[in-house]
Nucleic acid binder design. Structure first.
Lengths: 228, 228
DNA sequence: TGCAAATAGATATTTTTTTATCTTTTTATT
DNA sequence: AATAAAAAGATAAAAAAATATCTATTTGCA
C-alpha cells in the first residue's frame, strides 16, 4: 500500500556514496605504492585482500570512478589512480591554509600523502606569540591577526582548522568573512556557518567509539561479526 | 573476514550502527559542555540544531542508548551522558599505550576529552633515539625495544599506532605478540593481523576526499544538497 | 479547565549501502 | 583447439540508515 509523502523527497540523484568516498584514499595510497614497486595492473581481489573488505565492495567502489577494467587481468594502475583522483576532485591542486600550528597542525603539515593528493597548504596561522614568526616544518607561522589582510585578496579554497575547540568558532567566522567556502574542521565543535559554506568535520573520537562498542560486544559474547 | 554464504544469508545477531556510533562522541562533548554550564536537561531539537543534522536522526541515536526521556521536556543531561558512555563501552577506563611520539601522537596525548571518555594512555614508546628518555606532555618516552618487557605482564587493552606507515606493520606484529587485541591505527596502511585482533583505522584523508567530491559537485552545478 | 504547542516514542517508508549471484570475457594450460 | 579459471561487469536481493508520519504525553497559558 503506497502512502503518498506529503511533500515528497528531494531526489539527490545518488551522487554521494560517503563510505565509498572515504575508502578511496586507501585504494589510492596502495596504488601509489604498487606503482612505485613497478606494478602496472591490479585486480580487485588484490585490493580487497589488502583492505580486508569484501571483493564486491571494491568492485562497486571502482565502478563508481567510471573506469573500465580488463577481464581476467584487472585495472591499469596508472589509469585507476587517475580515475580515483578525478572522482575525488583531486586532479588539480587544492590550495589551503592551516589555522593552528599545534601538534595536530604540525602532523598535518608533515602528512606526506597530501603531496600526492594535490592538497597544498600554502600558509599557516596561529595566535600563540611563542609560535608566530617561527618555522614549523619549513613554513613560517603568521599571526592570525594578519589572516584577513594576507588572504582576502586571493583566499585559498580550503581552510583547515586545528585550533582549540574554544577558539574554533571565532576562527571559522573570520574564514567565512574572507570568503572561504570549504572548511576542514579538526576542532571538537560543530561549527555554525552560513548556508553555502561547507564544513567537513573530523571527529577523532569516532574511532574510539567504534573500538569501545566492539570491546563491549566482545566482552558480552564473542561473535564473528565484522566491523569497520 | 571471509564470510561466505553460498545461498540465503546469515543473520547478524548484533547490529552495529556505525554512523550513529560515530556521532555519539559529538553528543557527549556537547552534553559535557552543557552540564558545565549548569543545564540539567536537553531536547533532541537542541542537539539537532547544534549538530546541523535532522531531528529524527538525533532521536534515533538517543533511542539506541536505551534512555527514556520526558515528553515535552527532553532528557536529563547527566543520565544521557551515562547512557551514551555505557552504550559506547566507556563506563570504565580503557587502558592504552601509544606507539609513536611524533606530532600526531603528541596531539593525541594532549586531547583533553580522552579524560572524560575514560581513555587512559599509560605509556608512550618510540624508536627515535632523540625522543627516547625525553618527556612529551608529561610522559616519559620509552624505547620501543623495551615494549615487550614493559608491557607483556599486563598489557593495556588498546594500542594506538602513530608511527610512519613504513613502520606500522612491524609495530602491529609486536603488539599482537604481547597479546594486544585492539589497535587504533592512525598510520596510512591496512594492517594485517590475525583473526580476533581488532583494528580500528583512522583514515585522515577520508575527510579530504569528502571535501574534494563536494567541491567538484559544486563546480559542476550548484545544489543545495547537504552532505556529511 | 481546556487548548495549543513542544516533545518523546512508535511505526512506516524510502534511500543508501552492502552482499549475493549470474554472465561475459580473457588468459593460461593441457 | 578445447577447457578451466580468474576476473570484470551486470543484475538482484538484503541489510542498514535515514526520513517521514503518526501518537501520546506533558507543560504553559488563555
Amino acid at each position: 500500500m503506497v502512502r503518498k509523502a506529503k511533500r515528497g523527497f528531494m531526489r539527490r540523484g545518488k551522487i554521494l556514496n560517503t563510505p565509498a568516498i572515504r575508502r578511496m584514499p586507501t585504494y589510492l595510497h596502495k596504488l601509489l605504492k604498487m606503482r612505485l614497486e613497478g606494478k602496472v595492473s591490479v585486480s580487485s581481489t588484490e585490493l580487497a585482500e589488502y583492505m580486508n573488505i569484501e571483493l564486491i565492495v571494491v568492485r562497486k567502489d571502482i565502478a563508481l570512478t567510471g573506469i573500465s577494467g580488463q577481464r581476467r587481468v584487472g585495472y591499469d594502475i596508472n589509469e585507476l589512480i587517475r580515475y580515483i583522483k578525478n572522482y575525488l576532485g583531486w586532479q588539480d591542486t587544492i590550495s589551503a591554509t592551516l589555522i593552528g600550528a599545534g601538534s595536530l597542525g604540525s602532523a598535518l603539515l608533515g602528512y606526506d600523502d597530501f603531496n600526492h593528493y594535490g592538497f597544498g597548504i600554502e600558509s599557516v596561522f596561529d595566535a600563540d606569540p611563542s609560535k608566530i614568526g617561527k618555522e614549523i616544518r619549513g613554513r613560517e607561522v603568521f599571526d592570525i591577526a594578519t589572516l584577513e589582510s594576507r588572504l582576502k585578496n586571493s583566499p585559498p579554497e580550503v581552510a583547515v582548522i586545528c585550533v582549540s575547540s574554544a577558539a574554533a568558532q571565532q576562527v571559522a567566522d573570520k574564514l567565512v568573512a574572507i570568503g572561504i567556502k570549504y572548511i576542514w574542521n579538526f576542532a571538537n565543535v560543530a561549527l555554525q556557518v552560513p548556508p553555502g559554506v561547507v564544513v567537513q568535520r573530523e571527529v577523532i573520537a569516532g574511532g574510539l567509539a567504534m573500538l569501545g562498542v566492539r570491546m563491549k560486544l566482545d566482552r558480552e559474547h564473542d561473535t564473528g561479526v565484522a566491523f569497520d
